[in-house]
Design a protein around this nucleic acid. Structure first.
Lengths: 204, 204
DNA sequence: GTGGTTTAGTAATGGCCATTATGAAAAAGG
DNA sequence: CCTTTTTCATAATGGCCATTACTAAACCAC
């Protein structure tokens, strides 16, 4: 019973996601958000709660819809392919939409006022979760001989994440996809090779 | 003639620099700035103009006082030493002060409201200037045979900057200096070598 | 000492911010 | 049709923001 909602909540969330992606958490005002969503202020509040809750929903959606290349990458057969897939996918994503370049997980809040601290921490946690998955994947690769015994999975995971973050910063500064791919290529040229990996293909 | 200034302008600038380093341009309020500087609002305005001008002064001082390892690095004899000096110095700087980790040049404004656009662009320009110097240094290294003929100076410069930016993001997330140095070490592994460089030391 | 000039500190000013009260409109149940 | 419930839209609310009048104090020249 009662009146039906007249706007699409998913579409409003997508619109808010794009605004946050472009302006970050604190840089995005409700004026920006309501204009992008085509919805009045109280509608956003009733649908999502407050600004922080809206951002968290947008962040979750971002990981689902745009960072899906990470679970994809983790399933590739070699550690090098995992890293390559992540770096090239990041280069593509961070330059795909001219209106919101870079990465929401970094543009969101890097530094800000004390009020933004919980959101900043949420982004840190999200990135740390990805890095943990990557480290565990590299540990498995080491156990499988795909990475040499001297390889440090935690350093490799942090390195891949650092390059990805750096490319996100550069994308936000206007770097083209080609330039980011050159960075990715350079990053991968330093990749360690294990005894099995030089000619190894997708053998089980 | 007239009353003397009772506060040290340099010290006030240093205090503002630290606040901007920690909270970024938009996240820092005049309440924060005046408290840190120990100076009332109108004093900051009369000494520096408005907030944007104060930030630009702080940014200039940051490059002079904290990013001095870049001109240092450019004078080192080999491209690898240049890159290593930059990456290890960045790892140290970005974790040296627990109260303001990361890099002012990135924390300042990555994404923000439209009002912050001029400041954001100033940071982009500053980073681009550093990257240009680095590319030119690598071009020289290539001409000198220190880097192989297949090396791409622009890609190498962008890569070193990307790793540095990524470490800044990680530092702001709380990464230790050790972890950042592991990232730097990974970035430097298998640095491209030219015919002369394998055993070259600091020869003129 | 006095006049002119610059700084210091208090307290405003107008604007934008996130959030919400209020009441009209619309849908469903009886 | 009428009541109940939910959504919609306008417009308000209080707070913080950058910026600045304004007044008192300190200093220099004379």
């Amino acid at each position: 019973m009662g009146r039906h909602r007249e706007f699409d909540v998913e579409k409003a969330l997508d619109a808010a996601l794009c605004v946050f992606w472009r302006k970050g958490y604190e840089g995005a005002s409700y004026a920006d958000l309501t204009e992008a969503a085509g919805v009045e202020r109280p509608a956003l509040y009733s649908a999502f709660g407050n600004k922080e809750a809206l951002f968290r929903r947008a962040l979750a959606r971002y990981y689902e819809r745009y960072m899906d290349f990470i679970p994809e990458a983790l399933q590739l057969p070699t550690a090098r392919e995992v890293a390559a897939h992540i770096l090239y996918s990041a280069a593509a994503l961070h330059t795909r939409y001219p209106g919101h370049t870079g990465c929401l997980g970094i543009n969101g809040v890097l530094a800000g006022s004390d009020e933004a601290e919980p959101v900043r921490q949420a982004l840190i946690d999200a990135r740390a979760a990805g890095e943990t998955q990557l480290r565990e994947r590299f540990e498995r690769a080491k156990a499988e001989g795909d990475l040499p015994g001297t390889a440090k999975p935690d350093a490799l995971a942090a390195f891949v994440m650092a390059v990805s973050h750096g490319m996100a910063v550069q994308a936000k500064a206007g770097f083209s996809r080609d330039r980011l791919e050159a960075v990715a290529e350079q990053a991968l040229s330093t990749w360690p090779t294990g005894s099995r990996s030089t000619f190894s293909g997708t053998s089980s």
